[in-house]
């Protein structure tokens, strides 16, 4: 695995939801593919997916899809990251 800066949970949630958004056209989302893109151990990925399901941000843990609430969250999340970039603030790239 490539070495990346330590991310906090919110950043991982954001990254995971962003990946799911890009994968929106795929019939079935493969978890190992998600794991590679997110760069976390598989058991941790499953834990995050369960937490996101509990928050009602995704529909299913085995083949996760964004809920309406998840789409709204990711839209707000991207806007805030863009705002921080414009403000000259850094957020664990």
């Amino acid at each position: 695995m490539k070495k990346i800066a330590r991310r906090d949970k919110m950043k991982i949630y954001g990254d995971l939801l962003t990946i799911l958004q890009y994968e929106i056209n795929n019939e079935k989302i493969v978890l190992t593919r998600l794991q590679l893109k997110l760069n976390v151990p598989f058991d941790r990925l499953k834990q995050y997916l369960t937490e996101l399901k509990d928050l009602d941000l995704i529909e299913d843990v085995t083949s996760p899809k964004l809920t309406e609430k998840g789409k709204e969250y990711i839209s707000e999340y991207e806007k805030v990251l863009d705002f921080m970039r414009r403000m000259g603030l850094e957020y664990q790239k």
Partner: peptide, 18 residues
């Protein structure tokens, strides 16, 4: 109202200064 959003979304207290 806008400046509080980085703190609300990331949960990082270091952005509360804005």
């Amino acid at each position: 109202r806008f400046m509080i959003k980085p703190y609300e979304v990331t949960g990082e207290s270091r952005y509360i200064g804005l």
